[in-house]
Simulated assay, not measured.
Amino acid sequence: MALPGKDAAVTPAPFPASTKTASATIKGIETTATMLHFTDKILVTITQHGRLAHWVHVPLDISATDNPLTSNPYLEQEDDVPPSDLLPMHHLTATTILGGTVPELDVLGQTLATQIASAVLTRNSDERRMVVMGMGLDRSMAGREEFSELLGLVLELL
């Protein structure tokens, strides 16, 4: 009888994982963003008051069955319309995996995660690791200006 895990492939990776951190004061609250690059995932955390209460993930790897989503002629932009880097890619979907009990913050978290995943793919179109994002945000962060500041803080890490 083989032991569990004996047949699993081992992928050598440097440790510790590549890590970047940035901090800013947003709406008077010290906010810290961290990005860790593992071999199979990109982990992003955004914390305020030392909390992590809501987790979402965005798969970047599109399977062959999802390919029509990326090649749908009705979703493609017209030639005379310039592409917008401000909009998230239409084929990326954020899913709450833990927490998300405050509706405004759940929408904020999923939108942030999708936008960050889009930025990751814009920077490297061959990226296939899943983006996992943990947040612990104050309820006052659900506004448009706060969204822009949170996104800007995380984009500093790319």
Results as ranks from 00 to 15, higher is better:
52 L>M: 13
49 H>I: 00
78 E>A: 11
82 P>Y: 09
57 H>P: 00
91 H>M: 02
108 L>T: 10
123 R>Y: 02
110 Q>S: 01
126 D>N: 14
102 V>M: 08
129 R>M: 11
78 E>C: 01
121 L>N: 07
44 V>D: 06
131 V>D: 02
66 D>P: 01
37 H>N: 08
61 D>L: 14
41 K>M: 12
65 T>Y: 08
100 G>F: 04
88 P>A: 05
118 S>W: 03
126 D>M: 13
79 D>K: 09
64 A>Q: 11
120 V>I: 14
130 M>L: 10
55 W>T: 13
53 A>P: 10
130 M>Y: 00
49 H>E: 10
114 T>D: 11
108 L>P: 00
85 D>C: 10
91 H>T: 07
103 P>D: 05
127 E>C: 09
106 D>Q: 12
136 G>P: 12
73 P>T: 03
53 A>C: 15
61 D>H: 15
94 A>K: 14
125 S>E: 12
97 I>A: 13
85 D>W: 04
85 D>V: 08
47 T>W: 14
64 A>D: 06
52 L>E: 08
98 L>G: 10
98 L>W: 15
39 T>R: 00
98 L>H: 11
38 F>R: 10
121 L>G: 03
64 A>I: 09
108 L>A: 06
123 R>M: 02
63 S>A: 07
113 A>H: 03
109 G>H: 02
38 F>P: 02
74 Y>V: 09
89 M>F: 10
119 A>C: 05
52 L>Q: 08
107 V>C: 05
75 L>G: 05
66 D>C: 04
100 G>C: 06
116 I>H: 10
131 V>E: 00
62 I>C: 13
70 T>G: 15
63 S>T: 14
50 G>I: 10
58 V>W: 02
93 T>P: 01
56 V>A: 15
101 T>A: 07
83 P>D: 09
135 M>E: 04
51 R>Y: 01
100 G>L: 02
96 T>F: 03
124 N>K: 07
117 A>F: 07
89 M>C: 14
78 E>Q: 05
42 I>D: 12
96 T>V: 11
102 V>I: 08
134 G>I: 01
89 M>G: 00
96 T>E: 12
114 T>G: 12
47 T>H: 02
69 L>P: 01
124 N>G: 09
109 G>Y: 01
51 R>S: 10
94 A>F: 06
99 G>C: 13
39 T>E: 12
102 V>K: 04
44 V>R: 04
105 L>V: 04
104 E>T: 07
64 A>M: 09
105 L>A: 09
119 A>D: 02
112 L>N: 06
96 T>Q: 08
115 Q>R: 10
91 H>N: 12
40 D>Y: 14
112 L>T: 06
45 T>E: 02
59 P>D: 14
112 L>R: 03
44 V>I: 13
96 T>N: 08
50 G>F: 08
47 T>Y: 03
132 V>E: 09
128 R>S: 12
117 A>G: 12
91 H>V: 02
76 E>W: 04
130 M>G: 04
114 T>K: 15
63 S>N: 13
114 T>A: 15
116 I>W: 07
86 L>H: 01
83 P>T: 03
46 I>A: 04
52 L>T: 11
114 T>L: 07
108 L>S: 00
77 Q>I: 04
57 H>M: 15
124 N>R: 11
111 T>Q: 11
48 Q>C: 00
61 D>K: 15
100 G>M: 01
112 L>W: 06
